[in-house]
Structures are given as C-alpha cells and as structure tokens.
Simulated scan of single mutants.
Amino acid sequence: MLTFLAASIVAAGQTFTCTPTHVWDGDGPIWCAEGPHVRLSGIAAREMDGTCRTNQPCPDASPTEARNALVGLLGGARGRNSTGHVAVAGPRMTCRSEGSPGGNRTAAWCRLPTGADLSCAMIRTRTVLRWDRYWRGPACR
C-alpha cells in the first residue's frame, strides 16, 4: 500500500522541481516525489466522470484519453494505486508556480527535460483545450 504525504503548495512565482509519480487526469494533479500536486496551468480537460465544469472549456476527448496522453508524456503507466491514480516514473521537470488553484494543488507551468512546455504538449495531443482565462504561458508551436 502506498502512503503519500500531504501536498505542499508552492508560492506563486517560485520555481520548483517535480519528479512525477502519479497522475489523476489530463490536467492533473500530477503528484510529485518532492511533495507538490501540480495542476497544469492554462489547460482544461474533462473530469474523470466525463463532465466539464460550467465555467471551463470542454474538450471532445474523453477523460481517459486525456489522462493517457499525459501519462504517455510522463513516461507511460507503471500501475495504479488504490484511489485510481496512474503510477508513472516520469522525467524530472522544472515548474513555475502560479499559486494554488484551490485545494492542496499548485497550479504550474512545467517543462520537460527536452525544454518542451507540458501544457503545450498536452494541447498538441488534442485531448485538452487551452483555457484562455488562465493562459499566461508560452506561445505553443
């Protein structure tokens, strides 16, 4: 049985390291070995029950497709825990916090070791949508 420490919230503007260990859905949270739970900034995915909140963009892709796309970008699935989070052994990322989006999560822009922005990479999978209300990220290519 896996045990997880309470997630720490990283203050807005701070840069931090995240080594992904688990993923919930297409926009997070991504559980980091270092403690934070990252909600990817600037994008929206369907909730795992298939719904979209009324105040956010609603992609056509299923929640499972979006989650699996994120898991793929983070090195692939390595199993699941009892709560349904998909285990990953992702590459260490460098993230910049936007602060808390609510709950015990840190909204953040994260870069993979290749330098690619993870929110942009998710948009390219066509399983999530850019959320203009919160987009303060790079110009995706």
Rank of each mutant, 00 (worst) to 15 (best):
L2N: 14
T3F: 08
F4T: 12
A7T: 12
G13L: 02
Q14M: 05
T15D: 12
T17W: 00
H22F: 13
D27V: 08
D27T: 05
W31F: 05
W31V: 14
W31K: 10
C32W: 05
E34D: 00
E34M: 07
P36A: 07
V38R: 02
L40A: 07
L40C: 05
G42W: 06
G42F: 06
R46V: 08
R46N: 04
R46I: 08
M48W: 10
M48H: 08
M48K: 12
T51K: 12
T51E: 02
R53A: 15
T54V: 09
T54E: 04
N55V: 10
Q56Y: 02
P59S: 04
D60Y: 04
P63H: 01
T64C: 00
E65A: 15
E65W: 01
N68R: 10
A69F: 04
V71A: 04
L73S: 03
L74Y: 02
L74K: 01
G75S: 13
G75M: 12
G76V: 11
R78Y: 06
G79T: 10
G79I: 12
G79D: 09
G79S: 04
R80S: 14
R80L: 13
N81A: 06
S82C: 01
H85P: 00
V86L: 06
A87G: 01
V88T: 06
R92F: 06
M93S: 00
M93G: 04
C95D: 04
R96A: 06
S97W: 08
G102M: 13
G102L: 11
R105D: 10
T106E: 04
T106I: 13
A107Y: 03
R111T: 12
R111N: 12
R111C: 01
R111S: 12
T114K: 03
T114S: 15
G115T: 10
A116P: 01
C120Y: 06
C120I: 13
R124E: 14
T125R: 07
R126Y: 07
R126S: 14
R126A: 14
R126V: 03
V128I: 11
V128D: 12
W131L: 11
W131H: 14
W131I: 00
W131M: 09
D132P: 03
R133H: 07
R133M: 01
Y134M: 00
R136C: 00
G137A: 09
G137T: 10
C140M: 12
